[in-house]
């Protein structure tokens, strides 16, 4: 289980990365933390002929930073899962709130410690596993991906246009994901998450993420998303509709769960049949909605 041959380049500037990507086109692959790409290379399921390692780039605010700017949180593509896990409480200042706890809480669900030490936020987004926590978050909260290349002006792609299908995004071969932007969630938001996996650290069979904005005791805005139920993470609009305008009670969450089950159309694999995944979706949504805080994996 050894990778096929490839040439390797580790540029020191983003411009060189972009140039290398432009030069080698779909022969090339960006190497970030390697926690998804290298297993696939070892299995020879991926066989890029050029690896462009972004690990040697000089530190760069856009790629490496976590910052808040006018209601938007920016997470650099090279930020490692581990940094998010240990991001200090109130690290985002007044904007920390529900979003900060979501980031810290979700990070712990991403694989295991050694995976989180190397794996990057941007790598997870670019890899686009439909059950990946960060992808679910990006889809549910409506993230925007900042994408650069040497041949086109920078573009900003909405999550729903970014994730296309399993392991496939709208990134062109010569493009580099540099940053992901998320809307800051004010204190009136309540976030929840629930994941079902077979073992500690495994990818979810199904996971759901919810965010509710509550005003005067009733839900005025709802975002519900799930992973493991389609080729990409999905927004669950029927579940959202069941929530908006209602008072958050277990019965309402139960209804939202039923709506979620009704609206997904998963396909099955060895980790769960279509029917099982559909059932789980409702359970995960219901539990995420009812969660007091982001649960820990073990």
């Amino acid at each position: 289980m050894k990778p096929a041959q490839f040439s390797y380049i580790a540029p020191e500037t983003v411009e060189e990365v972009l140039a290398a990507l432009a030069e080698h086109g779909d022969e090339a692959k960006v190497l970030a933390g390697g926690q998804s790409l290298v297993p696939m290379m070892n299995f020879r399921l991926a066989r890029p002929s050029v690896i462009v390692d972004i690990g040697r780039l000089a530190a760069d605010e856009s790629l490496d930073g976590i910052s808040v700017d006018e209601g938007t949180l920016r997470i650099g593509a090279r930020v490692r899962h581990r940094q998010l896990e240990h991001f200090p409480a109130n690290g985002l200042g007044p904007a920390d709130g529900p979003l900060g706890s979501l980031l810290r809480g979700l990070a712990r669900w991403v694989g295991h410690l050694p995976i989180r030490v190397r794996g990057t936020f941007g790598g997870s987004i670019a890899h686009a596993d439909p059950a990946a926590e960060w992808c679910i978050m990006a889809q549910t909260l409506g993230a925007e991906m900042v994408v650069r290349s040497s041949t086109r002006p920078m573009r900003i792609v909405a999550a729903e246009d970014f994730f296309e299908t399993v392991f496939t995004t709208s990134l062109e071969p010569e493009e580099l994901l540099t940053e992901v932007r998320l809307p800051v969630l004010g204190p009136d938001w309540r976030v929840g998450f629930c994941e079902f996996a077979r073992r500690a650290g495994d990818f979810a069979v199904v996971a759901a993420l919810t965010a509710l904005r509550i005003e005067d005791g009733s839900i005025v805005e709802a975002r519900v998303g799930a992973g493991g139920v389609a080729g990409t993470p999905v927004r669950l609009r029927a579940a959202e509709a069941a929530l908006v305008g209602a008072i958050p009670t277990p019965a309402v969450f139960h209804e939202a769960g039923l709506a979620a089950t009704g609206e997904v159309d998963p396909s099955g694999d060895i980790h769960g049949s279509a029917g099982y995944r559909r059932d789980l979706t409702g359970v995960m949504v219901r539990r995420a909605l009812g969660a007091e805080s982001i649960p820990t994996p073990v």
């Binding site: 289980m1 580790a10 390697g34 290298v38 297993p39 390692d53 295991h112 410690l113 050694p114």
Partner: peptide
């Protein structure tokens, strides 16, 4: 396993535990 799951290959890189099967020597 050579695909990141078993951890038999764990080494410390700058003090952090890392799967050495998922890193290239040139890195």
């Amino acid at each position: 396993c050579e695909h990141g799951v078993c951890g038999a290959c764990t080494v410390l890189i700058d003090g952090n535990p890392v799967r050495s099967c998922l890193m290239f020597a040139v890195q």
